[in-house]
């Protein structure tokens, strides 16, 4: 890595740490929304650096859809132990059991949209007033519009046309009872920045980001993992492929990419040459042109 790259990472890191410290100072019960994916791993690491030598002063919350990659859960539990932080797991299965949400049916059924209810219920139950997430503006066009301190009304909803002005580094986290904020410390990072930072800081990440052999089948142009939560169409055949994941969503809706990249450096090289966005591997974003905006308005991540 050359000197120039390190300098831009230094500036992004300083900005993110500033935002995380503001969250700690301005809110009573902040929580890190931890998915086990690379972005939430980076955010958690930034929180560690922001408060060293203290422990991270936030709870970690995982919204467990029940459709996770086993590697993610294993990684999550190891990290929580290492950092000595409190973990809250909110379960979509429980929301289904309690009749709060209804399982989708059909070949494209998944639990992505269901998570929003589980998330909002957990925020209310634990009285979290700031949810720190790893979303980035380069990921998706609706996210490109979102503030760093993003207000949610008492129904957990985002109102994109009435966002608070956000100038300089003056983040306004004042709110009324029952409202909360979503905080995005790595808003200004790109996928490449995240990987370069993981390399620089020598961070551990789940194995599924690296090239491995897996049973997959082709659906809507995506290599989907064979797992208990998918129903195969007659035309769909299980094959063994050398793949890796660019994002870490639910197993039935996250597409793998054919890849031989088995180190961070190789991943960086691969991403630099790639021609599709990482969200392109997510079936949840491909449902409609404004799928992300629609879900965000309702309270999604």
């Amino acid at each position: 890595m050359n000197l120039n790259q390190q300098k831009h990472l230094q500036e992004l890191e300083a900005e993110a740490i500033f935002i995380i410290r503001e969250t700690c100072a301005q809110f009573e019960h902040p929580v890190i929304l931890f998915s086990g994916g690379k972005d939430s791993i980076v955010v958690t690491h930034l929180a560690y650096k922001a408060f060293w030598p203290s422990n991270i002063p936030f709870t970690l919350m995982h919204i467990d859809t029940g459709h996770n990659f086993p590697e993610t859960i294993e990684f999550r539990d190891k990290l929580v132990e290492k950092l000595n932080v409190k973990l809250v797991v909110a379960s979509v299965q429980e929301s289904i059991n309690e009749g709060r949400v209804k399982e989708e049916v059909g070949f494209n059924a998944n639990r992505n949209a269901l998570q929003t209810v589980t998330l909002l219920d957990a925020i209310e139950e634990h009285k979290f007033d700031a949810c720190i997430g790893g979303a980035r503006r380069d990921e998706e066009k609706a996210r490109a519009k979102e503030r760093v301190f993003s207000h949610r009304d008492e129904f957990g909803q985002w109102n994109p046309k009435k966002q608070r002005p956000e100038l300089w580094t003056l983040f306004n986290g004042l709110k009324n009872e029952g409202e909360h904020f979503r905080i995005f410390p790595i808003s200004n990072w790109t996928e490449l920045d995240v990987w370069q930072y993981i390399l620089q800081e020598e961070l551990d990440i789940p194995n599924l980001y690296f090239s491995h052999e897996r049973e997959v089948f082709l659906r809507n142009g995506q290599w989907i993992a064979n797992c208990p939560w998918v129903t195969l169409r007659e035309s769909e055949k299980i094959e063994k492929k050398i793949v890796r994941y660019r994002t870490c969503g639910d197993m039935p809706i996250t597409g793998a990419v054919l890849s031989e990249a088995s180190t961070i450096t190789e991943i960086i090289r691969e991403i630099s040459a790639t021609h599709t966005t990482e969200r392109g591997t997510r079936a949840d974003d491909r449902r409609s042109e404004t799928a992300m905006e629609d879900r965000k308005k309702l309270g999604y991540f």
């Binding site: 503006r137 609706a142 996210r143 490109a144 046309k161 905006e293």
Partner: peptide, 21 residues
């Protein structure tokens, strides 16, 4: 590419700041 909100895309105007990288 930059007008990411539904209202912006239908009306063909920019309403809010969009960040691009």
């Amino acid at each position: 590419l930059t007008d990411g909100l539904k209202d912006e895309r239908t009306q063909g105007i920019t309403i809010d700041v969009a960040y691009r990288y």
